[in-house]
């Protein structure tokens, strides 16, 4: 009898051990290092708040956080609009289950390919001599190529939406697909119009998906350094890309301190979302 009680521990042990050594301890390490000192060559273990006070005293960090939030907010709004609209189409307009799954898979396939390549693939489209500009010039709509398309905030956000829309689409689709069609028929019988059904039934019942998707998109955008570096042409920076610069210069403690602040902010946001929607219990349905 006591043997069967041990079973789940044995079964969960490999995952627990790996997660503990590869996530738990490293995060603690980052926390510890954030109090150390460094001169760009070596690290000096000690306990001091300077890394934090220094970062907070510089105005730059607020700009970085602001910029990161703006990227995240715009991307979030766009991906929710896209994810919701596409899910709505798939769930309520594509009635055939086989087609539904096929179309969803069509959207999901790029997820399993390289993000770097998907990002790079915008370059020949958006560049000064890219497909978009040359087409517009040929059509006579513009005289000179549009510069803001590539190596700009526009390019950064476009890439984010391109890369992360799936993370919103799939969870929203999942929660929307669980809506009982009878509910909508009942609302129609009660005289509700399309808008009312959307507002009072579909959106509230999709909120787990929206919340889960938002967590994914927010954390992906806030954790990115590569897209913002390449697609802004080095002109913009986010918290993590600034951190990456610190790391490249071996200022690990400073990078760690910034990282800890970012993690704190991210976890606060995630906790706030989880407070509104109990994702774990909803996932179990």
């Amino acid at each position: 009898m006591s043997g069967s009680k041990l079973v789940p521990y044995v079964q969960a042990a490999p995952l627990a051990i790996i997660m503990f050594t590869m996530v738990g301890i490293p995060l603690i390490t980052v926390l510890v290092i954030s109090f150390w000192d460094s001169d760009g060559i070596s690290l000096y273990p000690m306990f001091r708040w300077e890394n934090y006070t220094e970062i907070l005293s510089r105005g730059l960090v607020y700009d970085l956080f602001l910029k990161t939030f703006i990227y995240a907010a715009i991307t979030l709004v766009l991906t929710i609009l896209i994810g919701f609209t596409c899910s709505y189409f798939l769930v309520f307009h594509v009635k055939n289950l086989k087609w539904q799954i096929a179309l969803l898979l069509l959207c999901t396939v790029p997820f399993w390919t390289s993000n770097i390549i998907r990002m790079v693939s915008w370059i020949p489209f958006l560049g000064r001599e890219g497909l978009f500009n040359s087409t517009l010039i040929q059509m006579g709509l513009i005289d000179a190529p549009l510069d803001f398309l590539l190596y700009s905030d526009f390019a950064v956000i476009l890439t984010y939406v391109h890369l992360f829309a799936l993370f919103m689409l799939v969870p929203i689709f999942n929660s929307m697909a669980k809506i009982n069609p009878n509910l909508i028929e009942a609302a129609q019988d009660a005289g509700a119009g399309s808008w009312m059904i959307l507002r009072d039934i579909i959106i509230p019942l999709s909120r787990t998906g929206i919340a889960l998707g938002s967590i994914f998109v927010l954390t992906l955008v806030m954790g990115d350094f590569f897209v913002v570096r390449v697609m802004s042409g080095g002109q913009s920076a986010s918290v993590v890309s600034a951190m990456k610069n610190n790391i490249d210069q071996l200022y690990y403690p400073q990078a760690s301190a910034m990282a800890i602040m970012l993690i704190a902010v991210v976890l606060l946001i995630v906790a706030a979302i989880l407070r509104v929607v109990d994702i774990r219990s909803e996932l179990a349905k």
Binding site: L15, L27, F216, F225, I247
Partner: peptide
């Protein structure tokens, strides 16, 4: 089980480069 689940969620949520920094320093 709750702790393990949240550790997994944390791992998804934290910026990857930072976890990389933690692992390399560890």
């Amino acid at each position: 089980s709750g702790t393990l689940f949240y550790l997994c969620i944390v791992s998804l949520v934290v910026p990857g480069i930072l976890l990389g920094l933690g692992i390399s320093q560890f």
